[in-house]
Write a protein that binds this DNA or RNA. Structure first.
Lengths: 243, 243
DNA sequence: TCGTGGTATTTGGTATGCCAAAAATCTAAG
DNA sequence: CTTAGATTTTTGGCATACCAAATACCACGA
Protein backbone atom coordinates (compact mmCIF):
# COMPACT_ATOMS: atom_id res chain seq x y z
CA UNK A 1 0.00 0.00 0.00
CA UNK A 2 1.93 2.95 -1.33
CA UNK A 3 1.25 6.11 0.59
CA UNK A 4 -2.48 6.21 1.13
CA UNK A 5 -2.39 9.91 0.53
CA UNK A 6 -3.88 11.85 3.37
CA UNK A 7 -7.49 11.74 2.24
CA UNK A 8 -9.55 9.38 4.32
CA UNK A 9 -11.54 7.87 1.39
CA UNK A 10 -14.68 9.85 2.06
CA UNK A 11 -14.96 11.98 -1.11
CA UNK A 12 -17.81 14.08 0.11
CA UNK A 13 -15.98 15.04 3.27
CA UNK A 14 -14.97 18.62 2.63
CA UNK A 15 -11.35 19.12 3.55
CA UNK A 16 -12.07 22.69 4.55
CA UNK A 17 -12.25 21.75 8.19
CA UNK A 18 -12.11 25.38 9.12
CA UNK A 19 -11.41 26.81 12.49
CA UNK A 20 -12.83 23.93 14.43
CA UNK A 21 -10.84 24.01 17.62
CA UNK A 22 -11.18 21.70 20.54
CA UNK A 23 -14.10 22.74 22.66
CA UNK A 24 -12.98 24.55 25.75
CA UNK A 25 -12.86 21.98 28.57
CA UNK A 26 -13.75 24.51 31.26
CA UNK A 27 -10.78 24.45 33.57
CA UNK A 28 -10.96 21.85 36.28
CA UNK A 29 -11.61 22.51 39.94
CA UNK A 30 -8.00 21.68 40.56
CA UNK A 31 -6.84 24.53 38.38
CA UNK A 32 -9.49 26.87 39.66
CA UNK A 33 -8.41 26.15 43.20
CA UNK A 34 -4.79 26.65 42.20
CA UNK A 35 -5.49 30.06 40.72
CA UNK A 36 -7.70 31.11 43.59
CA UNK A 37 -5.22 30.09 46.25
CA UNK A 38 -2.30 31.58 44.41
CA UNK A 39 -4.04 34.91 44.09
CA UNK A 40 -5.08 34.84 47.72
CA UNK A 41 -1.54 34.11 48.86
CA UNK A 42 -0.07 36.86 46.70
CA UNK A 43 -2.65 39.32 47.91
CA UNK A 44 -2.20 38.74 51.59
CA UNK A 45 0.50 40.50 53.53
CA UNK A 46 2.43 37.57 54.86
CA UNK A 47 4.56 39.77 57.05
CA UNK A 48 1.73 41.44 58.90
CA UNK A 49 1.76 38.92 61.71
CA UNK A 50 4.75 37.34 63.38
CA UNK A 51 3.08 33.92 63.48
CA UNK A 52 3.25 31.82 60.34
CA UNK A 53 0.15 31.85 58.17
CA UNK A 54 -1.46 28.44 58.03
CA UNK A 55 -3.94 27.01 55.57
CA UNK A 56 -6.51 24.36 56.37
CA UNK A 57 -7.53 21.91 53.67
CA UNK A 58 -11.02 21.35 54.97
CA UNK A 59 -11.69 25.01 55.53
CA UNK A 60 -10.49 25.80 52.02
CA UNK A 61 -12.57 23.07 50.45
CA UNK A 62 -15.60 24.46 52.24
CA UNK A 63 -14.89 28.02 51.24
CA UNK A 64 -14.35 27.11 47.62
CA UNK A 65 -17.22 24.68 47.56
CA UNK A 66 -15.23 21.70 46.34
CA UNK A 67 -13.94 18.58 47.99
CA UNK A 68 -10.51 18.22 49.48
CA UNK A 69 -9.13 16.27 46.53
CA UNK A 70 -8.74 19.15 44.06
CA UNK A 71 -7.62 21.35 46.94
CA UNK A 72 -4.84 18.97 47.79
CA UNK A 73 -3.72 18.81 44.18
CA UNK A 74 -3.66 22.59 44.03
CA UNK A 75 -1.63 22.67 47.24
CA UNK A 76 0.84 20.23 45.73
CA UNK A 77 1.23 22.57 42.77
CA UNK A 78 1.70 25.62 44.97
CA UNK A 79 4.32 23.73 46.91
CA UNK A 80 6.23 23.16 43.69
CA UNK A 81 6.06 26.89 43.10
CA UNK A 82 7.51 27.48 46.52
CA UNK A 83 4.55 29.42 47.81
CA UNK A 84 3.56 26.99 50.52
CA UNK A 85 5.09 24.13 52.40
CA UNK A 86 3.08 21.34 53.90
CA UNK A 87 4.38 19.84 57.10
CA UNK A 88 3.02 16.33 57.61
CA UNK A 89 0.45 16.11 60.38
CA UNK A 90 1.04 19.74 61.17
CA UNK A 91 -0.43 21.91 58.52
CA UNK A 92 0.19 23.91 55.40
CA UNK A 93 2.22 27.02 55.92
CA UNK A 94 2.57 29.96 53.58
CA UNK A 95 6.28 30.39 52.97
CA UNK A 96 7.87 33.58 54.19
CA UNK A 97 10.99 34.58 52.34
CA UNK A 98 13.97 35.95 54.17
CA UNK A 99 15.71 39.07 53.03
CA UNK A 100 18.58 36.98 51.76
CA UNK A 101 16.23 34.92 49.65
CA UNK A 102 14.60 37.98 48.14
CA UNK A 103 17.96 39.46 47.31
CA UNK A 104 18.98 36.18 45.78
CA UNK A 105 15.88 36.11 43.63
CA UNK A 106 16.46 39.64 42.44
CA UNK A 107 19.99 38.68 41.42
CA UNK A 108 18.64 35.79 39.36
CA UNK A 109 16.15 38.18 37.86
CA UNK A 110 19.01 40.48 36.94
CA UNK A 111 20.76 37.62 35.22
CA UNK A 112 17.72 36.71 33.17
CA UNK A 113 16.84 40.26 32.27
CA UNK A 114 20.33 41.06 31.12
CA UNK A 115 20.19 38.03 28.85
CA UNK A 116 16.86 39.25 27.55
CA UNK A 117 18.43 42.62 26.79
CA UNK A 118 21.22 40.88 24.95
CA UNK A 119 18.79 38.95 22.78
CA UNK A 120 16.66 41.99 22.11
CA UNK A 121 19.52 43.90 20.57
CA UNK A 122 19.80 41.28 17.88
CA UNK A 123 16.21 40.36 17.18
CA UNK A 124 13.63 42.91 18.31
CA UNK A 125 12.13 45.46 15.98
CA UNK A 126 13.04 49.07 16.48
CA UNK A 127 9.47 50.20 16.95
CA UNK A 128 8.86 47.63 19.65
CA UNK A 129 11.91 48.83 21.54
CA UNK A 130 10.91 52.44 21.24
CA UNK A 131 7.42 51.56 22.46
CA UNK A 132 8.95 50.74 25.81
CA UNK A 133 9.17 54.46 26.48
CA UNK A 134 5.41 54.66 26.61
CA UNK A 135 5.36 53.07 30.01
CA UNK A 136 6.91 56.22 31.39
CA UNK A 137 5.25 58.82 29.24
CA UNK A 138 3.28 60.09 32.24
CA UNK A 139 6.45 60.95 34.10
CA UNK A 140 8.98 63.69 33.55
CA UNK A 141 10.68 66.68 35.16
CA UNK A 142 7.32 68.22 35.94
CA UNK A 143 5.80 64.99 37.19
CA UNK A 144 8.37 63.15 39.18
CA UNK A 145 8.08 59.41 39.79
CA UNK A 146 8.83 59.88 43.47
CA UNK A 147 5.67 61.93 43.79
CA UNK A 148 3.54 59.12 42.41
CA UNK A 149 5.26 56.09 43.81
CA UNK A 150 2.38 53.67 43.52
CA UNK A 151 1.66 54.56 39.94
CA UNK A 152 5.31 54.48 39.00
CA UNK A 153 5.73 51.11 40.64
CA UNK A 154 3.04 49.66 38.40
CA UNK A 155 4.65 51.17 35.30
CA UNK A 156 7.95 49.82 36.50
CA UNK A 157 6.74 46.24 36.69
CA UNK A 158 4.93 46.52 33.36
CA UNK A 159 8.06 47.88 31.72
CA UNK A 160 10.23 45.05 32.91
CA UNK A 161 7.73 42.45 31.81
CA UNK A 162 7.34 44.04 28.39
CA UNK A 163 11.08 44.27 28.04
CA UNK A 164 11.62 40.63 28.75
CA UNK A 165 8.76 39.67 26.48
CA UNK A 166 10.59 41.38 23.64
CA UNK A 167 13.27 38.75 23.91
CA UNK A 168 10.74 36.30 22.51
CA UNK A 169 12.12 33.76 24.91
CA UNK A 170 9.33 31.89 26.68
CA UNK A 171 11.76 30.50 29.21
CA UNK A 172 13.08 33.90 30.22
CA UNK A 173 9.54 35.25 30.41
CA UNK A 174 8.27 32.41 32.55
CA UNK A 175 11.21 32.32 34.90
CA UNK A 176 11.19 36.04 35.54
CA UNK A 177 7.45 36.07 36.03
CA UNK A 178 7.83 33.40 38.67
CA UNK A 179 10.54 35.35 40.41
CA UNK A 180 8.51 38.53 40.18
CA UNK A 181 5.59 36.90 41.91
CA UNK A 182 7.77 36.08 44.86
CA UNK A 183 9.51 39.42 44.98
CA UNK A 184 6.36 41.46 44.49
CA UNK A 185 5.19 40.58 47.95
CA UNK A 186 7.38 43.47 49.02
CA UNK A 187 6.65 45.83 46.21
CA UNK A 188 4.82 48.32 48.35
CA UNK A 189 7.74 48.39 50.71
CA UNK A 190 10.77 48.24 48.51
CA UNK A 191 10.47 48.63 44.78
CA UNK A 192 8.43 51.77 45.13
CA UNK A 193 10.57 53.47 47.72
CA UNK A 194 11.12 57.09 46.99
CA UNK A 195 14.86 57.24 47.26
CA UNK A 196 15.29 54.51 44.76
CA UNK A 197 12.55 55.66 42.45
CA UNK A 198 14.51 58.79 41.66
CA UNK A 199 17.33 56.89 40.03
CA UNK A 200 15.11 54.26 38.46
CA UNK A 201 13.66 56.24 35.58
CA UNK A 202 16.95 57.49 34.10
CA UNK A 203 18.32 53.97 34.27
CA UNK A 204 15.33 52.63 32.41
CA UNK A 205 15.73 55.21 29.69
CA UNK A 206 19.39 54.35 29.48
CA UNK A 207 18.51 50.72 28.94
CA UNK A 208 16.13 51.62 26.15
CA UNK A 209 18.77 53.77 24.47
CA UNK A 210 21.28 50.96 24.51
CA UNK A 211 18.71 48.61 23.04
CA UNK A 212 17.86 51.03 20.26
CA UNK A 213 21.54 51.45 19.51
CA UNK A 214 21.80 47.67 19.23
CA UNK A 215 24.70 47.86 21.63
CA UNK A 216 24.56 44.33 22.95
CA UNK A 217 27.20 44.61 25.63
CA UNK A 218 26.00 47.96 26.92
CA UNK A 219 22.35 46.94 26.98
CA UNK A 220 23.22 43.80 28.84
CA UNK A 221 25.33 45.70 31.33
CA UNK A 222 22.74 48.37 31.97
CA UNK A 223 19.97 45.86 32.45
CA UNK A 224 22.10 43.85 34.83
CA UNK A 225 23.38 46.79 36.82
CA UNK A 226 19.96 48.31 37.14
CA UNK A 227 18.43 45.25 38.70
CA UNK A 228 21.52 44.44 40.72
CA UNK A 229 21.12 47.94 42.08
CA UNK A 230 17.72 46.99 43.34
CA UNK A 231 19.19 43.89 44.93
CA UNK A 232 21.83 45.95 46.66
CA UNK A 233 19.21 48.40 47.83
CA UNK A 234 17.06 45.72 49.34
CA UNK A 235 20.07 44.15 50.95
CA UNK A 236 21.07 47.45 52.50
CA UNK A 237 17.69 48.86 53.46
CA UNK A 238 15.48 45.85 53.63
CA UNK A 239 16.29 44.70 57.11
CA UNK A 240 13.51 46.77 58.59
CA UNK A 241 11.00 44.85 56.51
CA UNK A 242 11.81 41.42 57.75
CA UNK A 243 10.55 41.16 61.28
CA UNK B 1 -0.80 39.99 83.25
CA UNK B 2 2.46 41.78 82.59
CA UNK B 3 4.65 39.92 80.17
CA UNK B 4 4.86 36.38 81.44
CA UNK B 5 8.52 36.30 80.45
CA UNK B 6 9.34 33.61 78.03
CA UNK B 7 10.18 30.90 80.48
CA UNK B 8 7.49 28.32 80.80
CA UNK B 9 7.81 28.01 84.59
CA UNK B 10 9.55 24.68 84.48
CA UNK B 11 12.91 25.46 86.14
CA UNK B 12 14.41 22.07 85.54
CA UNK B 13 13.86 22.20 81.80
CA UNK B 14 17.31 22.72 80.37
CA UNK B 15 17.24 25.44 77.75
CA UNK B 16 20.02 23.74 75.86
CA UNK B 17 17.63 22.14 73.45
CA UNK B 18 20.50 21.30 71.17
CA UNK B 19 20.37 19.82 67.76
CA UNK B 20 17.04 18.14 68.21
CA UNK B 21 15.62 18.19 64.75
CA UNK B 22 12.19 16.98 63.76
CA UNK B 23 12.19 13.24 63.45
CA UNK B 24 12.30 12.18 59.86
CA UNK B 25 8.68 11.67 58.78
CA UNK B 26 9.57 9.09 56.17
CA UNK B 27 8.67 10.81 52.94
CA UNK B 28 5.07 10.40 51.88
CA UNK B 29 3.82 8.24 49.04
CA UNK B 30 3.13 11.42 47.14
CA UNK B 31 6.78 12.39 47.25
CA UNK B 32 7.95 8.88 46.60
CA UNK B 33 5.72 8.70 43.55
CA UNK B 34 6.99 12.10 42.44
CA UNK B 35 10.60 11.02 42.66
CA UNK B 36 9.95 7.69 41.02
CA UNK B 37 8.02 9.17 38.13
CA UNK B 38 10.49 11.97 37.65
CA UNK B 39 13.37 9.58 37.46
CA UNK B 40 11.50 7.32 35.10
CA UNK B 41 10.67 10.20 32.81
CA UNK B 42 14.23 11.49 32.79
CA UNK B 43 15.56 8.04 32.12
CA UNK B 44 13.34 7.19 29.19
CA UNK B 45 14.23 8.32 25.71
CA UNK B 46 11.22 10.39 24.84
CA UNK B 47 12.34 10.78 21.27
CA UNK B 48 12.65 7.10 20.51
CA UNK B 49 9.12 6.80 19.21
CA UNK B 50 7.21 9.27 17.08
CA UNK B 51 4.02 8.80 19.06
CA UNK B 52 3.66 10.75 22.27
CA UNK B 53 4.42 8.86 25.45
CA UNK B 54 1.35 8.51 27.61
CA UNK B 55 1.03 7.70 31.28
CA UNK B 56 -1.89 5.89 32.86
CA UNK B 57 -2.82 6.76 36.41
CA UNK B 58 -4.27 3.40 37.26
CA UNK B 59 -1.39 1.49 35.75
CA UNK B 60 1.07 3.64 37.67
CA UNK B 61 -0.78 3.23 40.93
CA UNK B 62 -0.71 -0.51 40.43
CA UNK B 63 2.97 -0.57 39.55
CA UNK B 64 3.91 1.56 42.51
CA UNK B 65 1.53 -0.19 44.85
CA UNK B 66 -0.33 2.89 45.97
CA UNK B 67 -3.71 4.34 45.21
CA UNK B 68 -4.39 6.89 42.53
CA UNK B 69 -4.55 9.78 44.97
CA UNK B 70 -0.83 10.18 45.67
CA UNK B 71 -0.16 9.41 42.01
CA UNK B 72 -2.38 12.25 40.92
CA UNK B 73 -0.71 14.62 43.34
CA UNK B 74 2.67 13.62 41.99
CA UNK B 75 1.42 14.17 38.46
CA UNK B 76 0.22 17.63 39.42
CA UNK B 77 3.71 18.40 40.69
CA UNK B 78 5.37 17.07 37.58
CA UNK B 79 3.05 19.19 35.51
CA UNK B 80 4.24 22.25 37.38
CA UNK B 81 7.77 21.21 36.53
CA UNK B 82 6.81 21.02 32.89
CA UNK B 83 7.62 17.35 32.53
CA UNK B 84 4.10 16.17 31.75
CA UNK B 85 0.86 17.66 30.62
CA UNK B 86 -2.49 16.16 31.45
CA UNK B 87 -5.21 16.53 28.86
CA UNK B 88 -8.65 16.20 30.45
CA UNK B 89 -10.41 12.97 29.56
CA UNK B 90 -7.55 12.08 27.27
CA UNK B 91 -4.51 11.17 29.22
CA UNK B 92 -1.21 12.29 30.64
CA UNK B 93 1.45 12.95 28.08
CA UNK B 94 5.18 13.27 28.66
CA UNK B 95 6.19 16.62 27.24
CA UNK B 96 8.59 16.60 24.32
CA UNK B 97 10.65 19.73 23.96
CA UNK B 98 11.27 21.25 20.58
CA UNK B 99 14.74 22.26 19.53
CA UNK B 100 13.80 25.91 19.95
CA UNK B 101 12.74 25.25 23.53
CA UNK B 102 15.97 23.46 24.36
CA UNK B 103 18.01 26.27 22.87
CA UNK B 104 15.94 28.73 24.84
CA UNK B 105 16.59 26.84 28.05
CA UNK B 106 20.30 26.73 27.41
CA UNK B 107 20.31 30.50 26.93
CA UNK B 108 18.60 30.96 30.29
CA UNK B 109 21.15 28.62 31.76
CA UNK B 110 23.90 30.77 30.29
CA UNK B 111 22.38 33.82 31.91
CA UNK B 112 22.23 32.20 35.32
CA UNK B 113 25.68 30.68 35.13
CA UNK B 114 27.28 33.93 34.11
CA UNK B 115 25.69 35.58 37.11
CA UNK B 116 27.02 32.77 39.26
CA UNK B 117 30.50 33.40 37.87
CA UNK B 118 30.14 37.07 38.69
CA UNK B 119 29.20 36.33 42.27
CA UNK B 120 31.96 33.79 42.68
CA UNK B 121 34.66 36.31 41.84
CA UNK B 122 33.66 38.35 44.86
CA UNK B 123 32.81 35.74 47.46
CA UNK B 124 34.24 32.29 46.79
CA UNK B 125 37.43 31.07 48.40
CA UNK B 126 40.45 30.58 46.22
CA UNK B 127 40.86 26.94 47.12
CA UNK B 128 37.25 26.17 46.19
CA UNK B 129 37.74 27.77 42.81
CA UNK B 130 40.94 25.90 42.17
CA UNK B 131 39.26 22.68 43.17
CA UNK B 132 37.11 22.99 40.08
CA UNK B 133 40.08 21.82 38.04
CA UNK B 134 39.83 18.41 39.62
CA UNK B 135 36.83 17.57 37.53
CA UNK B 136 39.09 17.47 34.52
CA UNK B 137 42.22 16.02 36.05
CA UNK B 138 41.74 12.81 34.10
CA UNK B 139 41.92 14.62 30.80
CA UNK B 140 44.82 16.23 28.99
CA UNK B 141 46.86 16.21 25.81
CA UNK B 142 47.51 12.50 26.19
CA UNK B 143 43.95 11.66 27.12
CA UNK B 144 41.62 13.74 25.02
CA UNK B 145 38.04 14.39 26.06
CA UNK B 146 36.79 13.52 22.60
CA UNK B 147 38.11 10.01 23.08
CA UNK B 148 36.09 9.51 26.23
CA UNK B 149 32.95 11.41 25.45
CA UNK B 150 30.68 9.74 27.93
CA UNK B 151 33.08 10.18 30.80
CA UNK B 152 33.83 13.75 29.86
CA UNK B 153 30.15 14.52 29.62
CA UNK B 154 29.67 13.44 33.22
CA UNK B 155 32.60 15.57 34.36
CA UNK B 156 31.17 18.41 32.36
CA UNK B 157 27.82 18.36 34.12
CA UNK B 158 29.45 17.93 37.51
CA UNK B 159 31.73 20.87 36.84
CA UNK B 160 28.91 23.19 35.94
CA UNK B 161 26.90 22.19 38.96
CA UNK B 162 29.86 22.64 41.27
CA UNK B 163 30.61 25.99 39.71
CA UNK B 164 27.13 27.32 40.26
CA UNK B 165 27.07 25.94 43.77
CA UNK B 166 30.11 28.08 44.54
CA UNK B 167 27.96 31.14 44.06
CA UNK B 168 26.20 30.18 47.26
CA UNK B 169 22.98 31.27 45.66
CA UNK B 170 20.22 28.73 46.25
CA UNK B 171 18.05 30.33 43.62
CA UNK B 172 20.70 30.07 40.92
CA UNK B 173 21.42 26.51 41.93
CA UNK B 174 17.81 25.43 41.87
CA UNK B 175 16.91 27.16 38.65
CA UNK B 176 19.88 25.80 36.76
CA UNK B 177 19.29 22.33 38.09
CA UNK B 178 15.74 22.46 36.82
CA UNK B 179 16.91 23.60 33.42
CA UNK B 180 19.61 20.96 33.38
CA UNK B 181 17.07 18.23 33.96
CA UNK B 182 15.17 19.27 30.88
CA UNK B 183 18.22 19.74 28.72
CA UNK B 184 19.91 16.57 29.83
CA UNK B 185 17.37 14.50 27.99
CA UNK B 186 19.60 15.12 25.00
CA UNK B 187 22.94 14.82 26.68
CA UNK B 188 23.91 11.62 24.94
CA UNK B 189 23.15 13.26 21.64
CA UNK B 190 24.37 16.79 22.01
CA UNK B 191 26.46 17.80 24.99
CA UNK B 192 28.81 14.91 24.46
CA UNK B 193 29.33 15.36 20.76
CA UNK B 194 32.91 15.05 19.76
CA UNK B 195 33.30 18.16 17.71
CA UNK B 196 32.13 20.31 20.57
CA UNK B 197 33.96 18.42 23.25
CA UNK B 198 37.24 19.48 21.76
CA UNK B 199 36.64 23.16 22.47
CA UNK B 200 34.87 22.61 25.74
CA UNK B 201 37.81 21.80 27.97
CA UNK B 202 39.93 24.87 27.14
CA UNK B 203 36.90 27.07 27.69
CA UNK B 204 36.30 25.56 31.09
CA UNK B 205 39.89 26.14 32.09
CA UNK B 206 39.60 29.69 30.87
CA UNK B 207 36.60 30.21 33.08
CA UNK B 208 38.46 28.91 36.10
CA UNK B 209 41.40 31.19 35.39
CA UNK B 210 39.16 34.24 35.23
CA UNK B 211 37.54 33.25 38.49
CA UNK B 212 40.88 32.80 40.19
CA UNK B 213 41.98 36.18 38.91
CA UNK B 214 38.80 37.66 40.42
CA UNK B 215 38.14 39.25 37.08
CA UNK B 216 34.40 39.70 37.41
CA UNK B 217 33.67 40.91 33.92
CA UNK B 218 35.87 38.37 32.22
CA UNK B 219 34.57 35.47 34.26
CA UNK B 220 31.03 36.47 33.53
CA UNK B 221 31.76 36.81 29.84
CA UNK B 222 33.53 33.49 29.56
CA UNK B 223 30.81 31.66 31.40
CA UNK B 224 28.14 33.24 29.26
CA UNK B 225 29.91 32.73 25.97
CA UNK B 226 30.75 29.14 26.75
CA UNK B 227 27.16 28.15 27.39
CA UNK B 228 25.82 30.35 24.60
CA UNK B 229 28.21 28.42 22.41
CA UNK B 230 26.44 25.25 23.36
CA UNK B 231 23.11 26.89 22.54
CA UNK B 232 24.39 27.94 19.14
CA UNK B 233 25.73 24.46 18.54
CA UNK B 234 22.42 22.82 19.35
CA UNK B 235 20.62 25.33 17.21
CA UNK B 236 22.88 24.62 14.29
CA UNK B 237 23.33 20.88 14.58
CA UNK B 238 20.39 19.78 16.62
CA UNK B 239 17.80 19.53 13.90
CA UNK B 240 18.67 15.94 13.26
CA UNK B 241 17.76 15.09 16.80
CA UNK B 242 14.23 16.35 16.76
CA UNK B 243 12.20 14.00 14.62
C1' DT C 1 -17.74 -3.16 1.46
C1' DC C 2 -18.65 0.78 3.88
C1' DG C 3 -20.61 3.73 7.05
C1' DT C 4 -23.78 4.71 10.69
C1' DG C 5 -25.51 4.44 15.26
C1' DG C 6 -25.39 2.68 19.54
C1' DT C 7 -23.06 0.37 23.40
C1' DA C 8 -19.21 -0.97 26.32
C1' DT C 9 -14.84 0.60 27.96
C1' DT C 10 -11.31 3.67 29.24
C1' DT C 11 -9.65 7.79 31.57
C1' DG C 12 -9.15 11.76 34.20
C1' DG C 13 -12.04 14.51 37.77
C1' DT C 14 -14.22 14.67 42.08
C1' DA C 15 -16.37 13.39 46.48
C1' DT C 16 -16.04 10.69 50.74
C1' DG C 17 -14.53 8.01 54.39
C1' DC C 18 -11.15 6.26 57.34
C1' DC C 19 -6.53 6.20 59.39
C1' DA C 20 -2.63 7.59 62.30
C1' DA C 21 0.21 11.21 63.97
C1' DA C 22 0.22 15.36 66.48
C1' DA C 23 -1.80 18.75 69.18
C1' DA C 24 -5.08 20.40 72.31
C1' DT C 25 -7.80 19.52 76.16
C1' DC C 26 -9.13 17.39 80.18
C1' DT C 27 -8.40 14.83 84.52
C1' DA C 28 -6.67 13.34 88.56
C1' DA C 29 -2.74 12.61 91.52
C1' DG C 30 0.83 15.08 94.26
C1' DC D 1 -1.37 25.01 91.80
C1' DT D 2 1.52 21.90 89.15
C1' DT D 3 2.05 18.23 86.21
C1' DA D 4 2.03 13.55 84.43
C1' DG D 5 -1.15 10.90 81.94
C1' DA D 6 -5.20 9.88 79.45
C1' DT D 7 -8.57 11.42 76.12
C1' DT D 8 -10.50 14.08 72.54
C1' DT D 9 -9.86 16.78 68.49
C1' DT D 10 -7.50 18.33 64.61
C1' DT D 11 -4.93 17.56 60.38
C1' DG D 12 -2.79 15.75 56.49
C1' DG D 13 -2.19 11.04 53.99
C1' DC D 14 -4.31 7.59 51.56
C1' DA D 15 -7.79 4.39 49.53
C1' DT D 16 -12.04 3.82 47.23
C1' DA D 17 -16.29 4.65 44.66
C1' DC D 18 -18.69 7.02 41.27
C1' DC D 19 -19.24 10.28 37.43
C1' DA D 20 -19.01 12.19 32.78
C1' DA D 21 -16.45 12.86 28.76
C1' DA D 22 -13.93 10.65 25.17
C1' DT D 23 -12.90 6.64 22.85
C1' DA D 24 -13.07 2.05 21.14
C1' DC D 25 -15.75 -1.49 19.59
C1' DC D 26 -19.44 -3.84 17.28
C1' DA D 27 -23.51 -4.99 14.94
C1' DC D 28 -26.74 -3.82 11.62
C1' DG D 29 -28.26 -2.01 7.24
C1' DA D 30 -27.68 0.25 2.65
Amino acid sequence: MPEPKQSKASPVMADTDIAIVRIAPETSFKNKAYEALKEAILKMDIYATPEPVMLDERALSERLGVSRTPIREAIAMLEQDGFVKTVPRRGIVVVRRSKAEIVDMIRAWAALESMAARLITTTARKKDITALRDFFKDFGPDRLPQDHVEEYSKANIAFHQALIALSESPVLVDLTNDLLLHVRGYRQLTIGRKDRTATSLPEHLGMIEALEARDTELAEKRARDHTLGLAAYVEAHGHELFT
